[in-house]
């Protein structure tokens, strides 16, 4: 058994949020790479502005994008860990509130979706997914998720007969409909299998994957490559201004499912996609 105090978790969450927003070099590298690949004039102009934007953000200490997102956490919690002196969820939320206030990030959360869309004032509550793992480590991933790309994401309960082709059609349909609105070039998370509730998480979990990694199952890895190529043939391009780069990556996560089901989810993220990790 390993004891971790709630205040340690709070501090780790705070640090993680701050570090993730401060990591601008990852964005600069991404836009430089995109500029090497993009052919369209307007698409290149947009990418040049984004590269300059990342530089200005660093110089002036301003976030790259005003949508500093809903705070999404992926907590891999060792089963031998005991959290002391408070709750895990409350600790993470306190860390989020402190980081968003200290770093002058935008508070974008409203308290009730229908009856009281009042800003909670500190960007909490965060969305927190906890996955038990063997051992005594607590590992936290953080992704600020903007609404532009989230709003264009979708879940669909496909039929088993739709199969691989049905999944591909669905992914392309989502990206095509999202067009300029999701802030391409995109990072695309695809979930397939499970149930209605879990497939959305699979798609988001795919977005947490380390940059540049392919799925370990080579069939899925190949499907990721094929989808990336087909998405980029859509011609939407950076900011929807036309071009070769509609997406920077496609990642798929899958799970077993009922013999009658083929749930699918596509979770889009914008070009400002960032994920940070911390271990306790």
């Amino acid at each position: 058994m390993r004891r971790i105090s709630a205040s340690e978790i709070e501090e780790a969450a705070r640090k993680l949020v701050r570090a993730t927003f401060s990591n601008l070099s990852v964005l600069e590298e991404r836009y430089k790479l995109a500029l090497r690949l993009e052919e369209s004039e307007l698409g290149r102009e947009a990418l040049s502005i984004l590269l300059e934007n990342a530089r200005i953000a660093g110089e002036r200490g301003i976030p790259v994008c005003q949508d500093t997102g809903v705070a999404v956490f992926y907590v891999r919690l060792g089963q031998e860990v005991v959290v002391e002196g408070g709750g895990l969820v409350e600790a993470i939320n306190r860390g989020v509130a402190r980081a968003y206030s200290e770093a002058y990030l935008r508070k974008s959360i409203v308290s009730d979706p229908l009856y009281d869309r009042r800003n909670t004032g500190d960007n909490t509550p965060a969305i927190i997914h906890v996955e038990p793992i063997p051992g005594s480590e607590l590992r936290m991933g953080f992704m600020p998720k903007g609404a532009g790309a989230e709003n264009m994401s979708r879940v669909k309960m496909l039929k088993p007969a739709d199969g691989l082709e049905g999944l591909k059609r669905f992914v392309l349909e989502v990206v095509e409909r999202a067009g300029a609105n999701a802030c391409p070039p995109l990072v695309i998370g695809v979930g397939v299998g499970g149930t209605l509730d879990t497939v959305g998480w699979l798609a988001k979990k795919a977005l947490f994957r380390e940059w540049g990694r392919r799925h370990p199952d080579e069939r899925y890895a190949r499907l990721e490559e094929e989808l990336l190529e087909e998405v980029n043939a859509l011609g939407i391009g950076p900011q929807g201004f036309g071009g070769r780069l509609t997406a920077l990556d496609v990642r798929i996560e899958h799970a077993p499912c009922h013999m009658a089901s083929l749930p699918a989810a596509v979770n889009l993220n914008c070009h400002v996609h960032r994920v940070g990790w911390i271990s306790l």
Partner: peptide, 11 residues
């Protein structure tokens, strides 16, 4: 159309 994600630039 402005460039989405260029918050510091427009600032």
């Amino acid at each position: 159309a402005a460039i989405g994600g260029a918050g510091a630039y427009y600032s």
